[in-house]
């Protein structure tokens, strides 16, 4: 219990510090001004969300291979947290895009593949609600999770190569595109903060899922008697 509280406190402090840094420490961007500051949260959430889905994929593979219940718990926890973070990305993106591009949404490669990614994991979680038997649910959702994750690069490249009319928007790209050193530090700090937050949420969700399955077993035993 103690460890989880500490992790939660650290996560919250880090997110607050990242918010402070992105507003007061990072220098103002020349052309976009204050608007650019959403980038620290937007991209950091995107990275943390992608890593959560990667964790989900690994958990899915481990479940199919080793069949431990804990892998199923880890799979659903990281998928849910990844979905929340991707939702943050999909909300902060249009907030930034409206003043910057003049539109909320464009069917560009990155936006579209993020949206399809989001849809795939919504389907993953939906599938889980529609199978009663715990072991079957774990196995089938793990398999769908594997197919979904394999699909993600295919979605990205198909849209990138054939659908994007204009070059990918340069949202001041990754670290390679010449970020100001202070900006870079703030950005990496935000990435760290979002990852710690994601880790905290995944741990909490994992414990919840574990409790749920224990309650489920107890209920079955009680019904059997």
């Amino acid at each position: 219990m103690g460890k989880r509280v500490i992790l939660g406190a650290v996560a919250i402090l880090l997110v607050i510090a990242a918010a402070y840094a992105s507003f007061y420490v990072a220098p103002e961007e020349r052309t976009m001004g204050v608007l650019q500051r959403i980038f620290y949260f937007h991209v950091a959430s995107a990275w943390a969300g992608m890593d959560a889905f990667l964790l989900c994929f690994i958990a899915n593979l481990l479940y199919v291979w080793k069949r431990g219940q804990k892998y199923d718990w880890l799979g659903v926890s990281s998928a849910e947290v990844g979905l929340v973070l991707t939702t943050v990305v999909l909300i902060t993106g249009p907030i930034w895009a409206k003043p910057a591009w003049g539109i909320y949404w464009t069917w560009d490669a990155r936006l579209t593949s993020t949206f399809v990614l989001w849809l795939l994991y919504v389907s993953y979680l939906l599938l889980r609600t529609l199978i009663e038997e715990p072991e079957r649910r774990a196995l089938l959702s793990a398999l769908f999770g594997i197919f979904a994750f394999i699909d993600v690069p295919l979605v990205f490249f198909s849209i990138r190569w054939w659908r994007t009319q204009h070059p990918a928007p340069v949202i001041m790209g990754g670290p390679g595109s010449g970020l100001d050193p202070t900006m870079n530090k703030v950005f990496l700090f935000s990435v760290l903060a979002m990852h710690v937050l994601a880790a905290f949420l995944i741990v909490e969700r994992y414990m919840l899922e574990k409790m749920r399955s224990e309650v489920d077993i107890l209920r079955r035993e009680a019904e059997a008697q």
């Binding site: 389907s123 295919l154 979605v155 198909s158």
Partner: peptide
């Protein structure tokens, strides 16, 4: 359709 259609996005696009 809910599981399949998003998965088939690349096929539809290309």
């Amino acid at each position: 359709p809910l599981l399949l259609l998003p998965l088939l996005t690349p096929v539809l696009v290309v």
